[in-house]
C-alpha cells in the first residue's frame, strides 16, 4: 500500500518530543556539558576534553565502588531469586491464606526507601536496636558502625527483607497461571517433586523471573537511599556503592566535572546492561 506523506504529522509528535526533551535529553546534555569542562568558580568554564573521563576510568576509587556494587548486586540476586522462588512455591494457592500472604508480602514494598533505611539503622543498633542488642547480648561481636562485614551483612539483610517480596509476587503470579492439568499430568507421568519444578514450574516462571532479575539488578545497581541512611557508605568506604560515591563527588566535594563524567559512564553501563537484558528477553520470546 502507498503511504501518505503528510508533514503535519510532526506536529502530532511534538508534545512528546518536548516532554522527553525537558525531562531527559536536556538534563542529560547539561551533564555532558559539565563532563567536558572545568571551572574555578564565578561561572567561568574551560574546555577540558576527555580528561575527566580518563581520570574517572583510571581512579581506583571508581573501580572499587563498581566492584562493591557488582558484588552487592550479585549477592542480593543470589539470595533473593532462589528465596523468592522458594517462598512463592510454598504459598497457598487457595483459601484464606492467599490474601493474608499477599498482604504480608506486599508490606515491605509499600515502605519508602528512607524509612526502610531508618528502620534497619535503629534495628541494628547495639544499644537500643532489637537485632543489634539481641546479638550483642548473645555474645556476638556485632557492630555495623565499626565492622565492614557487619555493615555488609546488615545492608544485604535489609535489601533481602525489602525486595524479596517483589520476586515472590512475580513468581507467584507465574505459578498460579499454571493450569491444574499440568500437575495432574505430571502425577500420571510419575514425575518427582523436582521434575515438576524443573519441567513445569520453572519454564512457566521464566519470563517473570527475567523481569524479576532485571528489576532487582537495576534497582540494586542504582541503590542509594537505604545504605546511605544505615551506614552512610561506611565504615570507611566499605559500603560506598556507585551512586553514593557519585553523590559524594558531586555534592560533597562539589567536583562537578568528574561527577558528570562518572554519571555518563554510569549511565552507559546501565544502558549496556539494559540492552543485554532486552536482547536476552526478546530472544527467549522468539524461541517460543
Amino acid at each position: 500500500m502507498e503511504k501518505t506523506w503528510n508533514n503535519k504529522a510532526w506536529f502530532m509528535v511534538l508534545p512528546v518530543l518536548l516532554l522527553v526533551a525537558f525531562s531527559a535529553v536536556i538534563p542529560l546534555m547539561t551533564v555532558v556539558n559539565y563532563s567536558v569542562q572545568d571551572t574555578f568558580g564565578n561561572n567561568v568554564f574551560f574546555w577540558n576534553g576527555s580528561d575527566w573521563y580518563t581520570e574517572i576510568l583510571e581512579s581506583e576509587r571508581f573501580w572499587l565502588s563498581m566492584v562493591r556494587n557488582l558484588i552487592f548486586s550479585a549477592t542480593i540476586l543470589a539470595i533473593e531469586i532462589p528465596l523468592g522462588i522458594f517462598i512463592a512455591l510454598n504459598m497457598p494457592k487457595k483459601g484464606w491464606g492467599v490474601p493474608v500472604c499477599l498482604v504480608l508480602m506486599a508490606l515491605p514494598l509499600l515502605i519508602p526507601w528512607n524509612v526502610v533505611g531508618t528502620i534497619w539503622q535503629v534495628f541494628g543498633r547495639i544499644d537500643i536496636g532489637l537485632l543489634g542488642y539481641t546479638l550483642s547480648s548473645l555474645g556476638f561481636d556485632y557492630n555495623y558502625v565499626n565492622d565492614p562485614t557487619d555493615a555488609w551483612v546488615t545492608v544485604i539483610l535489609m535489601d533481602v527483607w525489602h525486595w524479596t517480596s517483589l520476586v515472590v509476587l512475580l513468581c507467584y503470579a507465574g505459578l498460579v497461571s499454571i493450569p491444574d492439568a499440568f500437575y495432574q499430568a505430571a502425577k500420571i507421568d510419575g514425575a518427582s517433586r523436582w521434575a515438576v519444578f524443573r519441567y513445569i514450574q520453572l519454564p512457566k516462571m521464566n519470563r517473570v523471573l527475567l523481569i524479576a532479575v532485571l528489576l532487582r539488578f537495576m534497582d540494586s545497581f542504582m541503590i542509594y537511599t537505604e545504605p546511605f541512611v544505615v551506614t552512610g557508605g561506611g565504615p570507611g568506604n566499605s559500603t560506598t556503592f556507585l551512586s553514593i560515591d557519585l553523590v559524594k563527588i558531586a555534592i560533597g566535594q562539589f567536583d562537578l566535572g568528574p561527577a558528570a563524567a562518572m554519571s555518563i559512564i554510569y549511565f552507559l553501563i546501565i544502558l549496556l546492561l539494559s540492552w543485554v537484558f532486552y536482547t536476552v528477553m526478546t530472544n527467549v520470546d522468539a524461541e517460543r
Binding site: 493450569p179 492439568a181 499440568f182 495432574q184 499430568a185 500420571i188 519441567y199 513445569i200 519454564p203
Partner: peptide, 13 residues
C-alpha cells in the same frame, strides 16, 4: 494409568 486432558499438556522446554 494414562490420562489425556482437555487442554494438551506438554513439557514445552
Amino acid at each position: 494409568i494414562a490420562q489425556v486432558f482437555q487442554f494438551p499438556v506438554i513439557y514445552d522446554t
